[in-house]
């Protein structure tokens, strides 16, 4: 998972200072923004661990945060200033201007450690089962899932699930790509058919 840090604060001194401290400890991409509104340009981020240092103020941009949360692991660290509104701010962690660099380091490390545990690595193996190979052969020869189900005497749902698994294992999604794979691995007999007709 990609890791990014956003430092969102209206004061440039705070932004730059915090960034400097973070750079001392972490080699992570840091983006400085002067207001939460600017986060709207980053809502296409996905599959990342996002650490947001945000000036503690009521969450006017809740929707935006939710959008980020949909596709990412998001952690909020509220930066307390002197305002009264900050009590309504909901954050995973809070810091204030007197915080030490060490404390910041330990918060970020903690986040990175927890989120590491949650990341489930997909088993990377391109060993196909015999059944998956059977399905692959028929896909490569241009048969539909329904036809494959009939030929192999299995249900169409099973065929679809085999197709999904083999696509994930091989890292190849298109039918013509799977056909090329089948030919490269001699799963189909190219003596009887012209392989170029299949792609």
């Amino acid at each position: 998972m990609k890791r990014v840090i956003f430092v969102v604060h209206s004061s440039e001194i705070v932004r730059c200072g915090l960034t400097l401290i973070l750079r001392k400890y972490f080699n992570i991409e840091i983006t400085q923004l002067s207001s939460v509104n600017e986060l709207s340009s980053y809502t296409h981020t996905s599959n990342s661990i996002i650490i947001l240092f945000v000036e503690a103020q009521p969450l006017v941009q809740e929707k935006l945060f939710l959008k980020l949360k949909n596709n990412n692991d998001v952690y909020f660290i509220g930066i307390d200033g002197d305002t009264e509104q900050e009590q309504n701010f909901v954050a995973d962690y809070r810091i204030d201007f007197l915080v030490s660099g060490l404390k910041i380091q330990s918060i970020v490390s903690e986040i990175l450690n927890t989120s590491n545990h949650q990341t489930v690595e997909l088993a990377e193996s391109s060993d196909l089962t015999t059944r998956e190979k059977d399905v692959l052969k028929l896909v490569a020869l241009g048969h539909s899932s329904k036809e494959i189900a009939d030929q192999l005497f299995i249900s169409i749902h099973t065929v679809i699930s085999h197709r999904k698994n083999l696509t994930e294992k091989l890292g190849i999604k298109s039918i013509s790509g799977l056909t090329v794979y089948a030919i490269l691995n001699k799963l189909i007999d190219t003596d009887s058919i012209n392989p170029e007709d299949l792609i």
């Binding site: 091989l170 190849i172 999604k173 013509s176 790509g177 691995n185």
Partner: peptide, 18 residues
């Protein structure tokens, strides 16, 4: 997505299987 998928397949075929 079809265009992107095939381009990615092409890369994978070249790098992983050829």
């Amino acid at each position: 997505s079809n265009v992107e998928m095939k381009l990615s397949d092409l890369k994978n075929l070249l790098i992983k299987y050829l």
